[in-house]
Design a binder for these strands. Sequence first.
DNA 1: AGCTGGTCCTGATGGC
DNA 2: TGCCATCAGGACCAGC
Length: 274
Amino acid sequence: MPELPEVETVAQEINAVLKDNSVIDRIEIIRGDLRFPVPARLPKYFSGQKITQIRRRAKYILFETPKYVLLSHLGMSGSWRFIGSNEKLEKHDHCLIHFVAGKKLVFHDPRRFGLLDFFSVGSEQKHPRLKELGPEPLFQESFSGQYLYEKSRKRNVTIKAFIMDQKTVVGIGNIYASEALFRAGILPLKLAAKMTPEQCHSIVVAAQKTLVDAIKSGGSSIRDYRNTSGEKGDFQSLHNVYDRTGLPCRRCKTPIRSKVIVGRSTYWCPKCQS
DNA sequence: AGCTGGTCCTGATGGC
DNA sequence: TGCCATCAGGACCAGC
């Protein structure tokens, strides 16, 4: 369930539930063959440690302890949920964080595209998955129209693929890419190199609004979304174009169009976007 | 059968 | 021709 709003929501929920009861008793790996093997020494490094902060970077969730930081990515179908000390596990529960206070936090991921890893405090910029990431769209001023314009020069890719590239800007996945470009009034198939400074500015503003709105709705606008209580969200109605092929544009009633580009379904309004 | 939120890797392509 | 950057597509999986 992983674009930025969903990951942000999960990080906030985990923070809220844990509060100060965040001392890890032990970490239990049930199935370690996720996208990459879970490092064998990971449980050892975190047992007995107190989680001091949980935060999001890109689509990763970082659990910080004094010496090490646990890193998780939800892939396409991952989720974290809390269960009580006596609750049963479900199929596809791969990792458990047992807290001293009794709760357990469970990593669940049917497709196993997710990832669990760790790094030493202070070495975030060295981690192979984190060092190449672009700016945060919501709290780094470096994500500006000017930045996007300069970065997109000579880039012979569609603007949609360009903003989904985590080296350009982090957090925008397939759904919110279509949604942001609708909001910016730009056709997703246009080439990145053809964007004007004004269009780049529009994309930045539209992407930020789209992500903020999605966070406000609890990030529940995704098919497999589950919050940390394990409840499903309502995947529907909030989108302007995503998954609405043939349905009337909410703004002008023109039927929404769709096409697979760069392997991903893409949606747009042929009248509102040019 | 053909979709589905992500992203890593490989081999192909194109420019200099 | 060779080197480099860039790009498209396949791969990873389960479930609906």
